[in-house]
Amino acid sequence: MKDSTAYRLFRVFNVVVLLVIVFVTFYPFLNMVAQSFSSEGNINSGKVNLIPLGFNLETYKVVMADSMFWTNYENTVIYTVVATAISIVLTTFFAYAISKRRLKGRNLFIGIAVFTMFFNGGIIPNYVLITSLGMKNTLWAIVLPNAISVFNLLIMKSFFENMPEELEEAAAIDGLNTYGILLRIVLPLSKAVLATMILFYAVVNWNSWFSAFLYLDKKELFPVTIFLRNLIAGATSEGTSFGGSAENLTQIASNVKAVAMVLSVVPILCIYPFVQKYFVTGVMLGSVKQ
């Protein structure tokens, strides 16, 4: 059937609207990149939008020569790897156990997890707890408190539930115990969901800053997000070496901020085109009615 004129007009309009959406979504990234290659003078005279003006790589050299930036970058990598590993182990164990309908007390265990989605202790009791556990200024304050995301847990649970039971039954007859079944039968068949979970946790950990902001006071322990946060907040006393002595520097140059931002976004932008389909799969799995 032929489309009406109105609908054909709408389709043209629709494409235009979506192109505008794409442009607006992408613009802040382009602006950030343009500023990172521009000279400070051009940024301050309000000319830099999409195209770098006064193109130079000096700012990159300055930021990349800063040892604290790399120390913090390294911390981000360490925190992300450790936290993701802990999260994956805990989430897999719990999700596998509660995916078994024969588990007595199953609903209680599910309830314990799900309730925390709707009610949480709040910042203050958490802060008091972490402090009194002596976890301040340690890696543990960053990697433990948010180790299990209940949302991810439910995704994994529904994935395990949908696995054909016969496989596990056959493995049990062959003499494998629960641990063996999980390690040798279930996990090798769960690569897709594991990849999704690793990505979900890794992105959250890579991006996180607030735990570090609350629990870390030492510069050499900061993740790169805190380094950035201090740059953006213009906290010159935090001791960055950009542009000479920190005392007479009232404002950190826009191009320096832009470079630091670009450098911390690059890893995500590089893997993004290859992994975004896993994120989508993950959300779809999660939407399967429990």
């Binding site: 009791p125 008091v128 433990l144 180790a147």
Partner: peptide
Amino acid sequence: YFIIFRYLPMAG
């Protein structure tokens, strides 16, 4: 994990 990092703060 849930007891220490989720329910203790609730009680806290």
